[in-house]
Design a protein around this nucleic acid. Structure first.
Lengths: 190, 190
DNA sequence: AAGGTCTATTAACATAGATCAATGATCGCC
DNA sequence: GGCGATCATTGATCTATGTTAATAGACCTT
């Protein structure tokens, strides 16, 4: 009997997964704990792993030259993590991925995963679905930066991530919205 | 003898294209002229066409509630145009796509194109490549909005689109950077 | 070439959000 | 349960960019 994999369950919600491919994929998975404050990816390092979040919460963030952090996004349970652009370009990641809560992930080496691609079209289907989701999220975010002021972006954050306001510190939310913690404090007072 | 298609040549630079698929795809293409100022996609309308730019220059732009335009991006010769998020969601486009110069495109109905997908994996390869490119562009742009001020974003624009400064009006460049034409004028004076 | 319509520049003022600094509130830890 | 460290709030300024408005230049069109 095989061990359970939530990653595989997740993939099955997106595409048909032949039993053979399922087994091959399962062999690539290793389960890892990441404690709050630890990193899955660090800016400046090459990365070659993708992972599925079984438990916990992550954020992606940039660090500017003068050390200020800017949060790109939040990834809760049932998300796929990766420094995908860095993997594709085989270059150091521009950003870091940090656990905001104690987490458990299922990690897979991208290059080993990539080898499955030519064996069955299900993987391309899966990748297309992931990319489309990521693309839609970025398009939405771009629209927000172009069209909205800080207060509107805060409300958009609340709508999109209704439970994160309690789970995430103010200064991290502020860095997601693109303002200072002081400004966010003032906006919230209203 | 078949007519030339730059769209097909472009696809061949990305993936192997079996002769049978090439013929089927060619049958879907219709060549169209779009004059400067005319639209390929209009915000608020459903769209179901993708197109390849043979000649000319396009921009994607949002229009805010109070009628102000914000340019998402520029698409020169050898680019693929589509309101892809709107097509995926089968919903009205949030943005418009306008010709900034007299243009010639090769247009293809997305749903007819989509029917080819199950016939050969080359189409998924092609789609993954397009999505990755789009995704990388959005990631870069998000980073710029989070980390850079207006002047830095202007210089980033100049690096990325070296020849567009001459071809595109100031107020459109300003709307891409996310500032007013007046502010851009001041930045350029330096 | 004159007139009209876009487009770009410039200046004066307004404002959102940043910065700096001080004070309070929370939270983990011995 | 107290103490230091982190985090949030608040107030006083500062600055980048927006707004408004006026002018000047560019580009058509007849």
């Amino acid at each position: 009997m095989n061990s359970e994999s939530e990653f595989i369950e997740f993939i099955k919600t997106i595409t048909d997964l032949p039993a053979e491919q399922e087994d091959k994929f399962r062999a690539l998975i290793s389960v890892k704990n990441i404690n709050k404050g630890e990193h899955f990816v660090r800016a400046g390092r090459n990365s070659k792993t993708i992972a599925f979040v079984k438990k916990g919460l992550f954020r992606y963030y940039y660090t500017s030259e003068d050390g200020v952090e800017f949060t790109k996004g939040f990834f809760d349970v049932n998300s796929v993590l990766s420094a995908y652009d860095a993997i594709l370009e085989n270059s150091p990641a521009h950003y870091s991925i940090e656990a905001l809560e104690d987490a458990i992930i299922e990690a897979v080496d991208y290059y080993k995963f990539r080898q499955l691609f030519s064996e069955d079209p299900c993987w391309n289907n899966f990748l297309v679905a992931l990319l489309q989701k990521g693309y839609l999220a970025k398009v939405r975010r771009e629209r927000e930066f172009l069209l909205m002021n800080a207060e509107q972006r805060y409300h958009s954050f609340l709508e999109r991530y209704p439970d994160l306001e309690k789970r995430v510190k103010q200064h991290i939310i502020a860095s997601y919205i693109g303002i200072t913690p002081e400004s966010l404090s003032r906006i919230r007072k209203k």
